[in-house]
């Protein structure tokens, strides 16, 4: 009803920051992870750092170039700047990767559903984290909290990560730190140069080597869609409940607010209903349907 709507709009509380206007942040750290992946540490010029949950994303603006959806790669256990790990795949991400210390980058967010770390279903039990390439970025903050769970009741954390080749592996220091903190960490590459002594093969090939308890396991997966599909399927085959397998899905995003329509995946607006979704239910089917 128009009349009621108008009244309701007028009666709403103040909107706070304009939802479509980025908040300027200063680049206080740049770290080159690989030849085309850079981690930016950002601090709000106003000093206010927004709270986030691992798995959520921000819309980052490279002023004059555009805006792109980038996952937060900080851990809530780290004080200070907000991290984003960006792969140079287009004009906006290229501009973000070129940013220097002191440059200003716009931030809107955080948006979307998180991995749910800190919530009841991840407080105890085994957690299998599977990442492909830069898919480790949105999982970084989740793993960091999971390996430091206060009362995990014997629940273990398995971190399986893969990349095209050793030069594409990211967060090496973190992988070591998580291992020291008690996580089972396994790394694989699709192809290896001479001298590589680690595992070679798709990331799914690491699953056979872990002894997680299917009855208590929750899985968190992020990577290319096809990698997530085969990983989820393999985990289901091991007896893990499909509803306890969480994937971070990706589509084009231009607003983060459910208004631009680009991030649809069937019934979902991924910026609002995702990016993290359970594999069980619709998603398993949607992933097998062509061109969704």
């Amino acid at each position: 009803m128009l009349a009621e709507t108008a009244a309701a709009v007028r009666g709403r509380p103040p909107l706070g920051p304009e939802p479509l206007e980025p908040v300027p942040h200063r680049v206080v750290g740049c770290r080159k992870e690989t030849d085309d992946v850079t981690t930016l540490s950002l601090e709000s010029l106003s000093g206010a750092t927004p709270t986030f949950a691992p798995g959520q994303f921000n819309m980052l603006t490279a002023y004059g170039v555009g805006e792109a959806a980038i996952s937060v790669s900080s851990s809530r256990r780290e004080a200070g700047a907000l991290r984003h790990t960006v792969r140079d795949v287009g004009p906006v991400s290229a501009a973000l990767c070129r940013a220097r210390l002191g440059d200003v980058v716009g931030v809107r967010g955080p948006f979307g559903k998180s991995w749910g770390v800190g919530e009841a279903d991840l407080a105890t039990g085994d957690v299998v984290v599977v990442a492909g390439g830069i898919g480790l970025a949105p999982l970084r903050g989740a793993i960091d909290e999971l390996v430091h769970r206060p009362d995990a009741d014997g629940g273990r954390v398995f971190v399986l990560t893969g990349a095209r080749d050793p030069s594409q592996l990211i967060f090496g220091d973190d992988l070591e730190a998580w291992g020291r903190a008690g996580a089972v960490v396994a790394v694989t590459v699709d192809t290896a140069p001479r001298g590589w002594t680690g595992h070679v093969g798709l990331v799914t090939s690491l699953l056979g080597g872990i002894d997680c308890d299917p009855g208590t396991t929750t899985a968190l997966i992020c990577g290319p869609e096809i990698m997530m599909r085969f990983t989820a399927k393999a985990l289901v085959d091991r007896g893990i409940d499909p509803r306890r397998i969480k994937l971070s899905m990706e589509r084009n995003m231009q607003c983060g607010l459910g208004w631009c329509g680009h991030c649809q995946l069937g019934p979902y607006l991924l910026c609002r209903d995702g990016p993290v979704l359970p594999y069980g239910g619709d998603v398993a089917r949607l992933m097998t349907e062509r061109e969704r």
Binding site: G55, A69, S71, G112, I134, P138, D190
Partner: peptide
């Protein structure tokens, strides 16, 4: 499977 940008 691990090659492309992946990630949210």
């Amino acid at each position: 499977e691990s090659g492309s940008a992946g990630g949210t």
